[in-house]
């Protein structure tokens, strides 16, 4: 039997090959045939999940509730010590000093990364901004968000903090961070679906021990991770509840 693995479409592009390397490693370690399917966007990926095509997923926290509560997925691991954080940034020449001083009608550059967009919109609330009184400038990547700011095609942009920090120094010098989230408990997770659940413990243990040998460490490095850390059912339920409070 062949299984399907997929990765949240907001993965950092430099790690694309890393996910293929990881999938090859995982197949060898667990003796499963696993096909890695990379979807172009979140909607395509959600359609695949709804059609029960997915067995293993490195999931965006925004999709965790649907995966657990509607599709019977269980958490396995997350990248140790990492969490998803968002940044609101403006062009360095913009005179706004406080996110609360951004005014209704601003042009906001955003990607379709759902958890980052949600965290960013929450940080705009103190200035009475919401989806109804901003102009969204859709952007395929965080580099495009930065370009919109540099060309003054947007007044503010929402970034995944990790992606902002990976922008070149030259670009960052022309931007200014108004606010960076410090939420700490929202994170991507590797999750396992119903057809693979009987192997949950075996796959979990294999992943947790992955950094104990050179080969495994090399694969983790290609993903930009140091090691995996267990996500138990209650931690996942807690994050789902927390996400639920934030989508209101």
């Amino acid at each position: 039997m062949s299984y399907q693995f997929t990765v949240s479409p907001d993965f950092t592009p430099i790690h694309l090959s890393g996910w293929y390397i990881f999938n090859t490693w995982l197949q060898k370690q667990t003796d499963n045939a696993i096909h890695l399917e990379m979807y172009n966007d979140f909607q395509e990926q959600r359609d695949a999940i709804k059609n029960d095509n997915v067995d293993l997923i490195y999931a965006n926290p925004f999709d965790a509730a649907m995966l657990v509560r509607e599709k019977g997925f269980k958490p396995l691991v997350k990248s140790a010590g990492e969490s998803d954080e968002a940044i609101i940034a403006v062009n360095a020449e913009n005179h706004v000093e406080d996110v609360a001083h951004l005014e209704a009608g601003i042009r906001l550059a955003v990607t379709d990364d759902p958890d980052v967009r949600m965290m960013g919109m929450i940080m705009l609330e103190p200035g009475d901004l919401d989806e109804s009184n901003i102009e969204v400038i859709p952007s395929d990547t965080y580099v495009i968000v930065a370009k919109h700011l540099l060309k003054n095609e947007a007044d503010a942009g929402i970034f995944l903090a990790e992606s902002y920090d990976e922008l070149s120094k030259m670009i960052r010098r022309q931007l200014r961070v108004l606010v960076r989230s410090q939420i700490s408990v929202i994170h991507h997770s590797l999750m396992i679906g119903p057809r693979l659940l009987d192997q949950r413990e075996k796959i979990h243990d294999t992943l947790i021990q992955m950094n104990n040998d050179d080969k495994g460490r090399g694969v983790l490095e290609s993903l930009g991770f140091e090691q995996w850390q267990t996500v138990d059912d209650e931690e996942m339920e807690f994050m789902i509840d927390l996400m639920d409070t934030l989508t209101m």
Binding site: A100, I122, M123, E125, P126, G127, D128, F238, D241, L242, T245, L246
Partner: peptide, 12 residues
């Protein structure tokens, strides 16, 4: 119960 608090709008 989980309670999550965030920065409020000053207008509110």
């Amino acid at each position: 119960y989980t309670s999550v608090r965030r920065k409020p709008s000053r207008t509110k």
